[in-house]
Simulated scan of single mutants.
Amino acid sequence: MTTVLLVLHLFVTLALIGVVLLQRSEGGGLGVGSSGGGMGSFMGGRGTANLLTRATAILGALFFSIALTLAILNKGASQQNRSILDSPPASVPSLPAAPAVPTN
């Protein structure tokens, strides 16, 4: 279940990044919302902005809800050693004894 939610969370994250990059910025950066080509050719600039704004809001809500669900599902997993760095080494090799220092 956690793996499925994690993969879904990854897809929602990538879609959210894409939708945010498609929006028209104040400087007119990467957005397709400007008049001319892209989605603006069959929808008005205002319609494209509304569509991208709604998509951003929906994807943002999905992002936070999946993140909270993953946090709740993995709440009890912190007591177990989940990382290889947290577990003790399997076996510690014994070192040879240091040579004795002669006393004269």
Results as ranks from 00 to 15, higher is better:
Ser87Leu: 15
Leu68Ala: 03
Gly28Thr: 13
Gly40Gln: 13
Arg82Ile: 09
Thr48Ala: 10
Phe63Tyr: 15
Asp86Thr: 04
Pro89Asp: 13
Ala57Gly: 01
Pro93Glu: 10
Pro93Asn: 13
Thr48Gln: 08
Ser41Pro: 11
Ser94Asp: 13
Thr48Cys: 10
Leu51Lys: 07
Leu59Ser: 01
Ala98Phe: 11
Gly36Ser: 12
Pro93His: 10
Leu70Gly: 02
Gly45Trp: 00
Leu62Ala: 14
Lys75Gly: 01
Thr56Val: 11
Thr103Asn: 07
Leu51Gln: 04
Ser65His: 02
Val32Met: 15
Pro96Cys: 01
Ala61Pro: 02
Asn74Gln: 09
Val101Arg: 11
Leu51Met: 14
Arg54Gly: 08
Ala57Ile: 10
Ala77Trp: 04
Ala49Val: 11
Gly76Ile: 04
Ser65Asp: 00
Thr48Asn: 10
Ala67Glu: 07
Val92Lys: 04
Lys75Ala: 07
Leu59Lys: 01
Phe42His: 14
Leu95Arg: 11
Leu52Arg: 08
Gly40Asn: 15
Gly33Gln: 12
Met39His: 07
Val101Asp: 06
Ala90His: 08
Ser34Met: 13
Leu52Gly: 14
Thr69Met: 00
Val101Leu: 10
Lys75Glu: 00
Phe42Thr: 15
Ala77Tyr: 01
Phe63Met: 15
Ser94Trp: 12
Arg46Gly: 04
Leu30Glu: 05
Thr103Gln: 06
Gly45Leu: 09
Pro96His: 00
Ala100Asn: 05
Leu70Val: 08
Gly33Trp: 05
Ile84Asn: 05
Gly36Lys: 04
Gly27Ser: 15
Gly31His: 05
Ala61Lys: 03
Gln79Glu: 05
Gly47Asp: 14
Ala90Thr: 06
Ile84Met: 07
Gly76Ser: 11
Pro89Leu: 14
Gly38Tyr: 05
Ser83Met: 03
Gly40Pro: 08
Ile58Ala: 01
Phe64Lys: 08
Gly37Val: 13
Leu59Arg: 00
Val92Glu: 02
Gly60Leu: 05
Ala98Glu: 13
Ser91Ile: 12
Ala97Met: 12
Thr69Ala: 04
Ser34Pro: 09
Pro89Lys: 09
Leu52Glu: 14
Phe42Arg: 11
Phe42Leu: 14
Ser41Trp: 09
Ser35Tyr: 10
Phe42Trp: 12
Ala57Glu: 00
Thr56Asn: 07
Pro96Tyr: 00
Pro93Tyr: 09
Ala61Thr: 03
Asn81Gln: 05
Ala61Met: 06
Ala55Val: 06
Pro89His: 09
Gly76Met: 01
Arg54Ser: 12
Gly60Ala: 10
Gly44Phe: 09
Gly40Cys: 14
Gly27Phe: 14
Val101Phe: 10
Asn74Thr: 06
Ile72Leu: 06
Ser83Thr: 08
Asn74Glu: 11
Gly28Lys: 10
Phe42Lys: 13
Asn50Tyr: 01
Leu70Tyr: 06
Gly33Ser: 12
Ala77Lys: 03
Phe64Ala: 15
Ala61Asp: 02
Thr69Asp: 00
Thr69Cys: 03
Thr103Ile: 08
Ile66Phe: 03
Ser83Leu: 04
Ala100Ile: 00
Val32Asp: 07
Ala100Arg: 06
Thr69Ser: 00
Gln79Pro: 02
